[in-house]
Each structure stands twice: as C-alpha cells, then as structure tokens.
C-alpha cells in the first residue's frame, strides 16, 4: 500500500476530477425533465413539458431533418471517397504516401473557426451559402480525415496473405478488392460510418458560417437558441444528442475499439 497509485488520496482526487469532467453532461438529463418556465437547477417542478414544447417547435424539427439527411449523405460520400484513398495510401503505397496521408488529414489541424471563415469567403460569391452543395463539401472536409484514419488503420492491420492467395489463384485486382479486402475491412467501415455520422451530425462551427435562415443544421439551431434563451428545451435536445453519442461510442467500441481509435 505504499504506492502512490493505490492511495485513497489519489482515488479521491480522481473521483473529483472525473465529477468535474462529467458533471455538465450528466446534469442535462434531470434538467430536461424540468417543468419550470426558465432554467433553474435543481428544477423546482418536474414533467415532460419541454419535450412537448420541443415536439411543437417547427424550427428544431426542420433543423433535425436537415442534419439527418446531411449526415447520411456525407457518410455515404465519405466512404465512397475515403475507401479508395485509404487503399492508395496503405496498399498501392506510391512514393511519399506518408506525406500524402498527412496532407489529406491536414484539415483536422486547422481550427474550425478559420476553416469556416475561409469557406464562407469562397462559397459566398458562388451562391453556396445556406445551400446543400456548400454544406456537403464543408462536412466532407471536416469528416474525411477521421474516416481516412480509421480506414487506413483497419486496412493496415489486415492479414495480407489472404489477398495474396486470391491474387495467386488468378483473381483480378478488382476481384481481390471486392471479394477479399472489402469484406475483411467490414469492422473498420462500420467504425468509420459511426464516427463520420456523428462528426457531421454534431458539426457546428463551420456550419455556423455556411447556414442561413432557410437551411440550418440542428447544432446551429440549438446554438442560436441557447445563445438567446437557455431554457430547459435545450436540455431536451441535448439529451437526444447524448443518446446518439452513446450509441456511436458503443458501435465504435464493438467494431474497431475505442482505445485503439483514440489512443495511439
């Protein structure tokens, strides 16, 4: 018991730090069942009043369906674009493929406030503001680095001998890819799908620059709403978003492993 890692002081300290980390996420659950007219915590009265209010809110419903359609399209497109790119980086390996990989994941390093502003300035003259084309391109730029990273890791850790065996037995490159490589990549594709959908569905800063009154995503609508009046309805939407996040966390953990994806 003379190790620092075992002491009760450390355990208490860890519990306090963990409470600090989780408090804001945990608190929105009870808050969403508040029946007060304004945000008071702890709530004075309880009920599903704000969920009913949310169900009647046409703006939120519209924004929700925009985000759902957008995230679905972005996920499908990013797989169609990301799988060939990952195949080039990991399997064909042209000279400088590591540099290429760094280049393709570079948008991840750029702050979203700068990326959003930069896109606004180019997209505005093209009439791409509050427009599906602009939003899809923007979300692809933000989500593709994540997709590429998961897919490249998944492809790199595949046993190569199965593909070689298929090639030796006379299968064409295309045949090997569709009959052997792609099925083996299934866990990576599932993980990439889940993370990409979440990244797109939750994206807010870049979208703030590119949306407008006629086309808003859910996080943008929620941000504007919370900025003006942070009543418990925000907690109701937040609760739904947290449930979505937890579902994605489970899918990523079961498919590619949470620790393996986020801990290098």
């Amino acid at each position: 018991m003379n190790e620092l890692g075992q002491s009760w002081t450390l355990k208490l300290l860890v519990a306090l730090c963990l409470a600090y980390l989780l408090a804001p996420v945990v608190l929105v659950f009870p808050l969403s069942f508040s029946a007060d007219t304004v945000m008071v915590f702890p709530p004075q009265s309880w009920g599903v009043r704000w969920y009913a209010e949310l169900a009647r809110n046409a703006n939120m419903a519209e924004a929700f369906s925009v985000s759902l359609v957008l995230a679905t399209m972005v996920t499908v497109l990013s797989l169609l674009i990301g799988i060939p790119a990952a195949y080039v980086v990991v399997r064909i390996k042209p000279a400088g493929s590591q540099f290429l990989f760094n280049l393709l994941t570079a948008p991840l390093l750029l702050p979203t406030i700068v990326l959003g502003l930069a896109m606004l300035m180019v997209f505005a003259p093209w009439g791409w503001l509050a427009n599906w084309k602009g939003l899809i391109i923007a979300h692809l730029v933000v989500a593709l680095p994540y997709v590429l990273r998961i897919l490249a890791t998944s492809l790199a850790t595949l046993p190569h001998d199965l593909e070689e065996a298929a090639a030796t037995l006379g299968a064409s490159r295309l045949g090997v890819f569709f009959k052997v490589t792609l099925p083996l990549m299934a866990p990576g594709i599932v993980g990439a799908t889940a993370l990409c959908f979440l990244v797109s569905f939750d994206e807010v800063v870049v979208s703030l620059f590119l949306t407008g009154p006629n086309l808003k995503t859910l996080p943008v609508e929620l941000f504007h709403y919370a900025d003006q009046r942070p009543d418990p309805m925000v907690a109701c939407v937040s609760t739904l978003l947290i449930v979505l996040t937890m579902a994605v966390v489970v899918v990523i953990d079961r498919s590619v492993g949470l620790a393996r994806t986020f801990l290098k």
Partner: peptide, 17 residues
C-alpha cells in the same frame, strides 16, 4: 464519451451549473 459529445451540449451543461 465527452470528447464525442457536442460542445454546445457540454457548454449548456455549464450554463446550468
């Protein structure tokens, strides 16, 4: 899990606190 939770949601939690 918090890393994957929207910043709007987590910040709203801080408003409540």
């Amino acid at each position: 899990s918090p890393l994957l939770t929207s910043a709007v949601v987590r910040t709203y939690g801080w408003v409540a606190i």
